[in-house]
Nucleic acid binder design. Structure first.
Lengths: 198, 198
DNA sequence: CATTACTGTAGAACAATGTTCTATACTCAG
DNA sequence: CTGAGTATAGAACATTGTTCTACAGTAATG
C-alpha cells in the first residue's frame, strides 16, 4: 500500500472506490468486503464511502445497478431465432457471470447483511428480466417456445443459466468439462422447451 | 421471552439451540443470525453455543450436515425410471428446499462470513451428490440419459432444480404459477435430455 | 497573488458483533 | 449429603458499520 499524503481529486474517488470494492470482493469474497479494507485499497479515507456513496449499502447498490445494466446490455446484443435459438443468450449470460464474478455475487449469490436494493435498483433488475422476456417474445413470433407463456419461458431460461452458473461459482459443479457440459445442458433444454410438443 | 431462572438440562440445550437457530434464520434471515439472538431465543446463555457447538461456525456446520443428510434421504426414496423419469426426484428436491428454507439457505444460498464447511461436512455434501449420480446411473441402465456422462447428467438435474428454486427463494421468480411453471420446466428438461437424440 | 468556499482526511467515539475468560451457582451422580 | 461437572452471568477484547468534529489541502474568485 503506497502512502498518499495528499488528497485524492474528487472525480477520481468514486471510480477508485468502485474498482477497489470489486477487487476486494473478487479476492477476499464478502468477508473481506469492509469499509476500512475498501478505503485502504483505494488509498482513500473511510469517510469517502459515505460522501460518495451511501455507506456500505450504497456501494453495494452501485455494484448491483452496474451489474444489471451490463448484463442487460450483454443480453440485448443476442437474439433467439430458429437457427440460433437460445444458445447465444445462454452463453452471454454465463460469460457475464464468470467475467464479472463480483457483480454476479452481489446480484445473485450473496445476501449482504443489511443490504436491500432500493426501489429504483429493483427496477433496473426488473428491466433486465424484461429484456429476456422481449427476447422470448420475439422468438415466439417465429414459433419458438410456443408451448409456454412468455414470462414462464423466460423464467425457465433464467433458471437454466443461473442454476448451472451459480453451482459453478459455489464450486459444487462436478462436471469434468464445465464448458462442454453447459453446452450440452443448454442444447438439451432447448430441445425440450424451444419447439412445440403437441 | 419467558424468563428462565434455572439452568437448562444439558440434553436439551443442543436441540433447543438448533431449533432456535433455524427459527431465527427463517424469520430474520442471515442478518438476524447472531450468537446473542440465538441464545436469547433458546433461553440459554450465549456461552452454550461454544460449549455445545463450536461457536457460530460450528452451529452453521451442524445445520449444513443436517440439511445435506435430510436432502439425501429425500432423494433416496425417489427413483428415475421410464415412467417416472426425473419427475419425483426434481419434486423431492424442490419440496425439500421450500420446506427447509433455513437449511437450504446455509447449504446453497448464503455464504456466511467466516464459515467454511470442514472436510467431513464437505464429504456429507458430496455423498448427497453421489446419491443423485447413483439415481442417474440406474436410470441409464434402462436407457435414460444415455447421451451423457453420468456425472454430467446429474449436474444438469441439479442445475435445473437449483436454478429454479434459488431464484424462487431470492424472490426473483416472475412465473405466475410457480408450481405449474416448475412442472413445465422439469418436463421440458426431461424431454430434452432424458431420451436419446442421435 | 491572496482570500474564501469546498471537500477530502484523520481520528475519536458509539453500538453491535464474535469470541474468550473468570467466578459463581445450580444439578445430578456417587 | 457431598463433590464433580457444567450452565450461567458478566466483564473484556478486537473488529465491524456509522457518525461527528476538527483540520488541512484544493481550486476558483477577486
Amino acid at each position: 500500500m503506497a502512502s498518499r499524503t495528499q488528497r485524492t481529486p474528487s472525480q477520481m474517488i468514486q471510480p477508485e472506490l468502485m474498482a477497489a470494492a470489486l477487487q476486494i470482493l473478487s479476492e477476499s469474497g464478502p468477508e473481506g468486503f469492509t469499509i476500512r479494507a475498501i478505503a485502504r485499497r483505494a488509498e482513500v479515507a473511510p469517510m469517502a464511502i459515505y460522501n460518495h456513496f451511501d455507506g456500505k449499502d450504497g456501494l453495494l447498490e452501485a455494484i448491483w445497478i452496474e451489474g444489471f445494466t451490463m448484463l442487460r446490455r450483454e443480453l440485448e446484443v443476442t437474439s433467439i431465432n430458429p437457427n440460433n435459438k437460445l444458445f447465444d443468450t445462454a452463453h452471454a449470460y454465463r460469460r457475464f457471470a464468470l467475467t464479472h464474478r463480483s457483480h454476479y455475487t452481489v446480484m445473485f449469490m450473496h445476501r449482504f447483511i443489511g443490504f436491500t436494493p432500493s426501489a429504483s435498483a429493483a427496477a433496473v433488475a426488473l428491466e433486465t428480466f424484461q429484456t429476456l422476456v422481449r427476447l422470448v417474445k420475439s422468438a415466439q413470433s417465429v414459433g419458438i417456445f410456443s408451448d409456454y407463456d412468455t414470462v414462464d419461458a423466460a423464467q425457465m431460461l433464467w433458471s437454466t443459466c443461473h442454476g448451472f452458473v451459480s453451482l459453478e461459482m459455489l464450486d459444487i459443479n462436478f462436471a469434468a468439462d464445465r464448458d462442454e457440459t453447459f453446452i450440452d445442458f443448454v442444447r438439451g433444454v432447448e430441445r425440450g422447451i424451444a419447439n412445440s410438443h403437441e
